[in-house]
Write a protein that binds this DNA or RNA. Sequence first.
DNA 1: TTGACACGACACCATTAGGTGTCTTATTAT
DNA 2: ATAATAAGACACCTAATGGTGTCGTGTCAA
Lengths: 109, 109
Amino acid sequence: MSDNNRLRDVFDAIADPTRRRLIRLLAETDEMPLHELTAPFNMGRTAVSKHLAILKEAGLVLDRKVGRETRFRLNAAPLREIQDWLAFYSRFWNTNLRRLNQLLEEEEK
Amino acid sequence: MSDNNRLRDVFDAIADPTRRRLIRLLAETDEMPLHELTAPFNMGRTAVSKHLAILKEAGLVLDRKVGRETRFRLNAAPLREIQDWLAFYSRFWNTNLRRLNQLLEEEEK
DNA sequence: TTGACACGACACCATTAGGTGTCTTATTAT
DNA sequence: ATAATAAGACACCTAATGGTGTCGTGTCAA
């Protein structure tokens, strides 16, 4: 039913800073070929291609061939899994914040 | 000022499923010694200890010695960095959702 | 005071991760 | 027709990761 045919853990996919930068780049344009995605980085095309492959395995990126180039586009949907995971813990820093505010109010009296 | 003296990337720290399970365990109790944290896992004490060290480097865990045991407690605050990161992208799946809803409404006419 | 326990500190090992460079093959421009 | 471009497919290398087992030491209980 859902996209459980993902080969790679989303948490794993976003762990690498280079991959997060790639996601950011793709968020700013609709679609981008590999060579353009490679340009901003200080590494070879092969390396960037591998990172994109990992993002693809996590379902975070889609690709299609157009002529001689392979264009990539972002698919942010799988990031929701992380949001869901975070939701469970958000109450922790929220309660902490609440307590901190209480303390600050006490002190200001 | 802030806790930028973190040795380890939070994204990296939560990438490992074992470490996410540890975080979950610590979320359910106030404080827990290493040997109790080790019990639920299918691996040795040393391995779990290493994972906890990584969580500690990321600021996600605090530890203190009590007698002969080392007790760990969760510090969820650094997870906020991930929430902030996600916030930027949430608009993507939100717009997708909006479009999907539009399509479904069209079909129901 | 003698064990048993909880743990840190190593040394060690296999696998994965993240790079590199080269070769080949489509595709496009001249 | 030819040359340049874009990229896949490999082979390869090094460092980091995620485990293991053992040894030594402080602490608690009998």
